[in-house]
Design a protein around this nucleic acid. Structure first.
Lengths: 196, 196
DNA sequence: GCCTTACGAACGATCGTTCGTTAGGATGGG
DNA sequence: CCCATCCTAACGAACGATCGTTCGTAAGGC
């Protein structure tokens, strides 16, 4: 019963899986066919080229990240609340769509120019959302004023973009605790407060 | 004058450059030959296989990271000083050997089993150094006691391993300021201290 | 005269892709 | 209700290109 015929969405999903695990150049069309129980040539009933698949996977991830950020900023609340929502949204996208997100983060460089620029633009817009909240928080008094929001945003996103490399849902932290840990680290750091 | 004959070290260095830029599977031996002004087949005067090159590049980066950590822990000083040295050492390796470090971080999965395990073991040992300092600092009172050193170490290393993706020496921060920014973020976070 | 470095042709394997064809379910007219 | 039709998904052979690699050979400095 599971061996019904495949749709384009099935192909894109399997492509995400393999691209995430072995990279775009490390995945052949025949590999991808085998993953679906097909011949490599049969994939061309669904797509026009291998690059098409990468575009689809990466674009889908980009959309997920951008719309997650939009939902977070639409929230009522001070900058801390929005920042928490941004972190939680990023973690959700990363963990609920690991393969697309991984491919987005690691394989975008294999896109050819028009597509790569479009993806980099989406990423810029996404990162800008983080910077904007950090800047607003510094102005409103929620965050320190002596830190550069650009650098701070990059450091936070460095943490977030690495979550899929180590976090395992079966481990000690559930997802809420993960978000809390990242937020706590970002807000207060590891130093003892009473210390100089 | 620059077109003297090439040594094995030249080949490994050029391989690191291309592996970092295009990935292991995205780099062909003929690409690599062209980078050195050679035929692809001529590379086999210096190496036995393409995989050899990846092993060399990745192993070299692993050694650099591990010995950097050893130098940092050999330092006199409290845990904050050692932590700063660890951060500075990591940044130095990453920026002074970008290509090897990038390849180490991104292409280790393309190694076959015996070599990959050895590299993962080196990485584990390196990360253990960070955890050990964080644990010692929590015990001595330099750092907060309510944070998990394992998680904290991972978050810090997430920041450090991403530095090469955004830091440009021509930008606003020189290298010392970069280390200071990371240390400050890690120790105190972005929240206003007087805030709840 | 040897040893290192490089060449260039060639190997079989695999790459992404095209093509003509087919099985079978959906569709619609009589 | 049946049959002709169409469409989608898949096959398998084949294409030229490129892959990593081998081999026999040549050039040139210690």
């Amino acid at each position: 019963m599971t061996d019904t015929r495949n749709t384009r969405a099935d192909v894109v999903e399997a492509a995400g899986r393999l691209f995430a695990a072995r990279g775009y150049h490390g995945t052949s069309m025949r590999d991808l066919g085998r993953e679906l129980g097909l011949q490599g040539s049969s994939l061309y009933s669904h797509i026009r080229s291998k690059e098409d698949l990468l575009v689809d996977v990466v674009q889908r991830a980009a959309d997920l990240f951008v719309s997650s950020a939009e939902r977070a900023t639409a929230l009522a609340g001070d900058e801390r609340a929005v920042l928490r929502a941004l972190i939680a949204g990023h973690v959700d996208v990363l963990l609920d769509h690991v393969d697309e997100a991984r491919t987005f983060l690691n394989e975008a460089r294999s896109l050819d120019d028009p597509h790569r620029e479009r993806v980099l633009a989406a990423r810029d817009s996404y990162e800008h959302t983080f910077r904007a909240v950090l800047t607003a928080g510094a102005a409103s008094g929620a965050f320190r004023r002596d830190l550069d929001p650009i650098v701070t945003g990059i450091l936070l996103l460095s943490i977030l973009n690495s979550v899929d490399r180590w976090y395992r849902p079966a481990g000690r932290l559930d997802r809420t605790q993960l978000v809390d840990a990242i937020l706590e680290f970002t807000l207060r750091g590891i130093a003892l407060p009473e210390h100089g």
